[in-house]
Amino acid sequence: MSRPERLIMFDVDGTLVDSQGDILAAMTHAFERADHAPPLREAVLGIVGLSLDVAIPRLAPHLTDEMHGCIVGWYKEAYMGLRAQSGVVQSSPLYPHALDTLRALHAAEGNLLGVATGKSARGLDKLLDGHDLRSYFVTRQVADHHPSKPHPSMLLAALAETGVASENAVMIGDTSFDMEMARAAGIAGIGVAWGYHRPEALGTACAIARDFRDLPGLIDKVWG
């Protein structure tokens, strides 16, 4: 008897790709255009994973809703410009061994791969096409269609779309938002140590991967 299909969901920024250079540069540009001091690096990386309409007010709670909206727009404009200037591969490089691990997981019988990200659909499409990854992911959940993490909407939609039961799914991410989202959706969460939140912040993770090559073994342990 074949095993049931298993759904392996990935966060993007800080998990699959390291896009912090462009994130920090775009945030600096947006805040300077608003004539406000840019947030510290640690603060910016601390909100990666949240949807921008949630992240910006956290970074600047003293500003008006109107200014928050302006900063969101200026950030998007700057980020797209930086990506167009340097190209996806350079602006958002894959982490070491990510591609080989994705290939192995994708090739394994019964595995379905997906993405749950705070990126927009347009941003995710650009990234997947730039790295030629589109064919790996059967479900792609983005900020356009869901509340911000850690709301479980993205993962619940992925489960419904693929027909996989929650006990046969896992979320892989680098932030506390990813792990809280997984718990809220009733699925296991595996944290990664190479991303934007410190491993000790991933308190609800059932395991922490120190290297991309650790993931297949940790995923197998989730399902015994």
Rank of each mutant, 00 (worst) to 15 (best):
Y136F: 15
A34S: 06
C70Q: 14
A37N: 05
A160T: 11
A157P: 09
L202N: 00
E66C: 09
D129W: 10
I8F: 03
Y136A: 06
I23C: 04
E66Y: 08
A165S: 11
P150S: 10
V54K: 12
R3H: 15
T64Q: 13
E77T: 08
L124E: 00
G87E: 14
Y196C: 02
R183H: 14
M9I: 14
L218G: 03
G49N: 03
M179E: 03
F177I: 10
L52R: 00
H97D: 13
P39A: 14
S176N: 10
K76S: 13
A207Y: 10
R83A: 07
A84V: 04
L99G: 05
S153V: 07
D35E: 14
E32G: 08
A201N: 12
L63G: 07
P39Y: 08
D211R: 13
A157C: 11
V72Q: 12
F10I: 06
G186D: 06
A55L: 05
G69S: 10
I71K: 01
H106F: 10
K126S: 11
S166Q: 09
G118I: 02
G118A: 10
M1H: 13
Y196T: 01
G163S: 14
A182E: 02
P93I: 02
Y75L: 07
T28W: 06
I47K: 00
M179F: 04
A182T: 04
H131A: 12
G21W: 05
G49W: 00
R58A: 14
P57H: 11
P150N: 04
V44G: 01
G195N: 01
A165Y: 13
K76I: 15
D100I: 09
L63Y: 12
A34E: 04
I8H: 02
V12S: 00
A143W: 00
V170H: 02
P152K: 07
T101A: 08
G123D: 01
V17E: 00
I172T: 03
G81L: 08
A116L: 09
D174M: 04
H62C: 06
R3N: 05
A165E: 13
Y136N: 09
P96C: 09
P216N: 12
I47W: 01
N168G: 07
M1L: 10
L45S: 02
R198T: 12
A34H: 12
E109Q: 11
V12G: 00
L16Y: 01
R3L: 15
D13S: 09
E77M: 05
H131E: 13
D214M: 11
A207G: 06
H62S: 07
A160F: 07
I8G: 00
M181K: 04
P150L: 02
M67E: 15
